[in-house]
Amino acid sequence: MMEERGTWTLTGLTVAAVAALYLPCVQRTVPGGDSGELITTACELGVAHPPGYPIFTLMSRLAMVLLPSLSPAHSVNLMCGLLGALASGALCFTVCK
């Protein structure tokens, strides 16, 4: 019981620490590479170049709806930062188990 509680505590601290590092540093504009195309695709709910990244497109659109006052690029970059923090937490949880 205590070991499981420690695992969840460490996982939560990992997510919080990584989010505290990632989120203030995300770009507010369009980064390089395919990001511009993927952000535009999410704005229009279109299809990006193959393979299309449908889950990323839908999640990006949801981020734009939930954070309407920000630019689309900033909303998508914040979503990516949060997902990175959650992935770090999942890795921490897996290693602890």
Rank of each mutant, 00 (worst) to 15 (best):
T29V: 08
G6Y: 06
L58W: 06
G33V: 01
T9G: 05
D34M: 06
L91K: 00
G6H: 03
V26N: 11
M1N: 13
Q27R: 13
G84P: 15
E37H: 15
T14P: 00
H74E: 15
R61W: 07
G36T: 05
L62R: 00
I39V: 08
L62C: 01
L83D: 12
P68D: 13
C92A: 02
S35Y: 10
E44I: 15
G81H: 08
I55P: 08
V47Q: 13
T94I: 03
A16W: 12
A73T: 07
H74R: 06
S75D: 02
R28W: 09
G32R: 03
A85T: 10
L10H: 00
S71A: 13
P31F: 13
C92Y: 00
S60Q: 04
L13W: 03
A17F: 04
V76R: 02
A42C: 05
T40M: 10
L62M: 04
K97R: 09
P50A: 07
H74V: 06
L91I: 00
E44A: 15
R28I: 10
V30Y: 07
H49D: 15
G81Y: 01
M59N: 04
L45V: 00
E37G: 11
L67Q: 01
G46C: 06
A19E: 12
L21N: 11
M79Q: 04
A87W: 05
V30T: 13
E44R: 14
T57V: 01
L67E: 10
T9E: 04
G52V: 06
G46W: 15
H74K: 08
E37K: 07
A48R: 05
W8I: 13
V47D: 09
T41H: 05
L62A: 01
R28C: 08
R5W: 03
V15H: 06
V15T: 12
L58K: 06
G12L: 06
L91G: 03
T94G: 02
L70D: 08
G84T: 10
L58Y: 07
T29L: 14
V15W: 08
A90C: 14
R28D: 13
L70T: 05
E44L: 11
M79V: 02
M59C: 07
P24A: 08
D34N: 10
M59K: 01
L67S: 01
T7P: 04
A19G: 12
W8M: 07
S75P: 06
P72A: 11
L10K: 06
S69K: 07
L62P: 00
G84V: 12
I55W: 11
S75I: 08
M79T: 03
V26A: 12
M2A: 14
K97V: 08
A63M: 02
G36Y: 15
C92D: 03
V15Y: 05
